[in-house]
Design a protein around this nucleic acid. Structure first.
Lengths: 109, 109
DNA sequence: TGAAAGTTTGAACGCATATTCAAATGATAC
DNA sequence: GTATCATTTGAATATGCGTTCAAACTTTCA
């Protein structure tokens, strides 16, 4: 059980899980992208045009947003003939959950 | 059970829970603030100077960050004599959890 | 081949944000 | 009161981001 100052400071530095969590949270820190995730959480697969209509934005903006979501490993895509189907990654937010929990003090480090 | 297009589009618009979630995720989308939350998840209370040392930043920056975290209702503070003690809000991320879940398709809307 | 539907791309703009610095505030002890 | 420690505040800078627009690309179907 590590509990000295330097060990904790080190754990906070260059922590991949924290970096990824920040990237993913930052990505859904914008309502357009968050709405897309929320939508895909309840629809297994949707194409860009449909997503754009649901979240009331342009197709171009939806496409840009989906690109960022994919870069953050939150969304994946596959071609379905003429359209491209987007869906949530499995366990997309598992890492986020691990880092932030549900809030409140839990135990010593 | 609503399942038509317009109802879902409306649900996505002016949704307070989603707006709050975006605000809170955006706030911890920065490593400094996320580290502070991570730290406070494991320490019941810490003052600004200590937090700044842990996350390897200036006291001023830590103070600015804590202000944003408080504005996003993620952190609270109380005066302890000469210093000010910061702690995580109870159920700080409860709303975030509700919106994003852990990822993956769950059920129809 | 050519048209139409679906999607992506890159540039451009304006706006928000993180961080730093210096100065100001608040509390404590001598 | 004054010096010291802890913290906040505001301005300034630079960097990053969301959105829009027009143009390009891919697939399908006639």
């Amino acid at each position: 059980m590590r509990s000295n100052f330097q060990a904790i400071k080190d754990e906070l530095q260059d922590n991949e899980a924290i970096e990824l969590c920040a990237l993913q949270c930052g990505t859904i820190g914008d309502t357009t992208k968050l709405k897309i995730c929320y939508l895909l959480r309840h629809y297994p697969e949707l194409n860009v045009t449909t997503i754009a209509e649901f979240v009331s934005t342009s197709v171009s903006n939806a496409s840009h947003s989906l690109n960022k979501l994919r870069a953050a490993r939150l969304v994946k895509s596959r071609r379905c003939g003429q359209t491209i189907c987007y869906s949530l990654q499995k366990d997309a937010f598992a890492n986020v959950m691990n880092i932030i929990g549900s809030g409140g003090y839990v135990s010593g480090m």
